[in-house]
Design a protein around this nucleic acid. Structure first.
Length: 122
DNA sequence: CGTCTGACGCACG
DNA sequence: GCGTGCGCCAGAC
């Protein structure tokens, strides 16, 4: 194949970005997770920024990725500013039953979903 | 090839 | 609890 993976790469047979997309798609309805949790589940606890980077380009990815269910470790909707509609991310979460106040998820720990529990589905 | 940025996270004060 | 600095990996310039 045209796949020339460097020996230093611990990548799976899929790019890190695609792994992020698949994992984010597994986020249950009405649940949320954090960038760091996704990165850690993928084996790169320090690649939280990469998760955000991957989600930034998720607009060109299909099937669509529920990026609105991904927030930072503080439960803050740090990515809301990147959505087409202002407040759209908040609206989506609220529509799913997630309580959001001032662009921050209430009871974040309660609705938090651990992506590592879905690695089996990935 | 060097440098900066980025939807983050953590250590430190 | 809050501000600052650094590290993480990948891409853009």
């Amino acid at each position: 194949m045209t796949r020339k993976l460097p020996p230093t790469s611990a990548n799976e047979d899929r790019p890190f970005f695609e792994q992020v997309y698949d994992l984010v798609r597994l986020i249950p309805y009405g649940r949320v997770t954090s960038y760091g949790a996704l990165a850690a589940a993928l084996g790169s606890p320090g690649a939280a920024r990469m998760v955000g980077w991957a989600l930034n380009k998720c607009h060109s990815v299909h099937p669509p990725v529920p990026a609105h269910r991904v927030v930072n470790r503080k439960g803050l909707l740090s990515g809301k500013h990147f959505f087409p509609g202002e407040g759209m991310m908040r609206d989506l979460l609220v529509s799913e039953g997630v309580r959001v106040e001032d662009d921050r998820i209430c009871d974040f720990a309660d609705c938090f979903w651990d992506p590592s529990t879905a690695l089996d589905q990935l």
